[in-house]
Design a protein around this nucleic acid. Sequence first.
DNA 1: GTCTATACACAGATAGAC
DNA 2: GTCTATCTGTGTATAGAC
Lengths: 227, 227
Amino acid sequence: MKYSEFLGAISDSRMDICQNVYNEYKDKIKIKKEKTVLKNLEKIFDATLNIGIEKGFQAMTMRDLSRVSGLSMGALYSYFSTKDEILRVFLSEGRKIIGKILSESIEKEKDPVAKLETAVEVHLFLTEKMHKWFYFSYMEARNLNPEEKENAVQSELYTEKLIENILIDGHKKSIFVETDNSLAASVIKAMLQDWYLKRGKYAKKNIEVDQYAEFILPFIKSFYLKA
Amino acid sequence: MKYSEFLGAISDSRMDICQNVYNEYKDKIKIKKEKTVLKNLEKIFDATLNIGIEKGFQAMTMRDLSRVSGLSMGALYSYFSTKDEILRVFLSEGRKIIGKILSESIEKEKDPVAKLETAVEVHLFLTEKMHKWFYFSYMEARNLNPEEKENAVQSELYTEKLIENILIDGHKKSIFVETDNSLAASVIKAMLQDWYLKRGKYAKKNIEVDQYAEFILPFIKSFYLKA
DNA sequence: GTCTATACACAGATAGAC
DNA sequence: GTCTATCTGTGTATAGAC
């Protein structure tokens, strides 16, 4: 699959996240008109990601957020009751969307090699499309409260487990070599994460996401595929 | 090489960093007795890393640092004139030490395969020994001023260039396959970084640094070594 | 539904006693 | 060389006008 094909096949994830936030939190949000809420949630979402990536969520002040989002301080607090809630809500609703897309894509494929290819490609393409969310999520997860931090860790492990299961299945079917599949999944995950953590570097090297996928897939296969 | 052998061969990096800080900044530091300065710099260094890893440097207050380090607010400001200076100084002096150890270790080896093995092992072992510094450095680099941030980026690229040069040399000597060596170095770096970024995860999986090295070396070699 | 003005807490930094 | 007490700015959050 190419990134361009992927783009045509999925919906606007930013809108999906805001819609999810509305559905989940409409009782707590003081504004009642759905259209107004969605419009402003998107402004808050974009501003939070942009400032958060620029200087970190802790360093972002509510005055910054007000200025960049175009909403007043008072308006912001009609949507979220504390600054920390903004972080918690956008991260948790994002995780739900992403977990769903990834697992559904893998389930569609039958054989282990196709599953592995799909897992790698969909992960790279998702993080390319939502790179701001992913980078923000990675860097700010430690600012969550202990309970939510645990959810974030579990979500990471879930992705890794998806990959591990593909490797286990492939070995059972005598397609992949025998190895420590848990460790192998971690290492593959590390390569996938590097794509969104070092976006600036790859941009400078003129590497696009399709090229990155075409590089790491043979790299992974050369180790796991039996000769 | 095993991690235990590595440990026997290098000096106490925490003390080295503090010694470097003293040498470089003794004119700016208000306290004059070297022994006192070194003792207190180590306290400040440890406290900064511990609190910084726990909740981030931005969220760390000077009162936190005072409490954990055991020095008063006034005393802290006799060593560093601003909070940001603490970050800047510990990161830049750490980078100097690390770059030196890594490049010297690689230079000792002659053939590309041994160089590659050494680069991987020394990087993993260094990050294992100084894992707090590395994690802190990775997460807080963006809180540096633009000039220092650029230095941090360059230092990262330098490490990557060391690996890339090994791959280029290996290909010239017909030992390694032909590939995009810049991209290859990035991907190897990603695997190396995962070790210190996901320390908690590997601890839970009961993976030690020697095991991690033993896993990723064959993984890397299976791709680069000619059959 | 959105705004401005403000309360109140706490941050970084310093002065001056010891 | 180290401490305590304090200054001043800025942060989050809210009240109440429109």
